[in-house]
Simulated assay, not measured.
Amino acid sequence: MWEIIGLVALGLIAAVFGSIVGLGGGIIIVPVLILLGPELTGGAIDHATAVGTSLAVLIVTALASTLSYTKQERVDFRIGWLLFITSGPAAMAGSALTSKLQGDVFLLVFGGFMLLMAGLLVARDYMRPSARRWPVSRTYVDGQGVEHEYGFSVLPGLLIGFAVGLASGLFGIGGGSVFVPVMVLMFRFPPHVATATSMFVIFLSSILGTGVHAAMGETDWLLVLALVPGAWIGGRIGAAIAGRMSGKALLWLLRVTLILLAGRLILEGLGYF
């Protein structure tokens, strides 16, 4: 019973964080399943299964968030579908590569990636959006009636979509930690629009990535069932919170959490645990 409660809580907490900043929650679920697998399930969970399971849960988290953001009219579907052109195939490629990395190598690479994500989350508070005029111009009117103008370019966008999809499939995470800062800084996306559109792209990509992991037998469906209830509720809670606050305190909590988890993964990969 306590194991089930722990898994539901994990899905809830990860989804709340993920939805607020567009990460998707996998950045929390994967390392926790790897590091605390014996305590949560009674047995060790290998990295490929943790990734495949997280990606399946990510479908639910991203769908819940996307539905909430759609009601708030914050998802740029046109750009989201365009990004999916590269993020979808990349998610499948990343999923196929996960099991090719040995356990220790995966821990080191994933730990390094988490540190990079924490750095991006910090850097975006101190960097100014580009003033460049892009070929495609878009506008968004927020809840206060303020109009925001942002841009887009197809080729850089497709490259961003590829990076998001590859990270999603390889690590079982949303990739929003790459998507959101880049879209805000490069294309001047309003942060709420970047986060909402990120969750939509993650939803589409995670479906294809999950299909590959499932076909390779790298998805624990019982774990998915335990994590899904919390993920669904957390995805909607996170989207609601993101619409009412800047989330700066939660962002700092997430940054610290990422750094601590990354440090533990790297030390584990180096054989210190």
Rank of each mutant, 00 (worst) to 15 (best):
V30Y: 12
V32K: 06
L35F: 11
L36F: 15
G37I: 08
G37R: 02
E39I: 09
E39L: 13
E39N: 05
E39D: 11
L40M: 06
L40G: 08
G42P: 05
G42R: 01
A44K: 13
I45R: 05
D46G: 07
D46H: 09
A48S: 14
A48H: 11
T49D: 00
A50V: 02
V51D: 08
G52P: 01
T53R: 08
S54G: 12
L55T: 03
L55R: 01
A56F: 08
L58C: 04
I59T: 07
V60L: 14
A62S: 15
A64R: 04
S65L: 02
S65T: 09
S65E: 04
T66R: 07
L67C: 04
S68Y: 04
T70I: 00
K71V: 09
Q72L: 14
E73D: 13
V75R: 02
F77E: 03
F77H: 10
R78Y: 05
R78W: 08
I79N: 03
I79C: 01
I79H: 00
W81G: 12
L83M: 13
L83W: 05
T86S: 14
S87R: 01
G88I: 15
A91D: 01
A93D: 02
S95E: 06
S95I: 09
L97M: 15
T98M: 10
T98W: 07
T98K: 03
K100S: 14
L101G: 02
G103S: 15
V105W: 12
V105H: 10
F106D: 03
V109C: 11
F110R: 06
G112K: 04
M114Y: 09
L115P: 01
L115Q: 04
L116G: 06
L116H: 08
M117R: 03
M117S: 14
M117H: 03
A118L: 02
A118I: 02
L120N: 06
L121F: 13
R124Q: 15
R124P: 02
D125G: 10
D125E: 14
D125N: 14
D125H: 12
Y126H: 15
M127H: 09
M127Y: 09
M127C: 11
M127V: 14
R128L: 11
R128P: 00
R128F: 04
R128D: 11
R133V: 14
R133S: 12
P135D: 11
P135R: 10
P135A: 11
P135Q: 11
S137F: 04
S137N: 09
S137R: 13
S137V: 13
S137C: 00
V141F: 01
D142H: 03
G143D: 11
Q144I: 00
G145K: 00
G145L: 06
G145I: 05
V146T: 12
E147I: 09
E147T: 12
H148W: 10
E149H: 13
Y150W: 02
G151W: 00
S153F: 05
L155G: 05
P156V: 00
P156T: 05
P156W: 02
P156S: 04
L159G: 12
G161V: 00
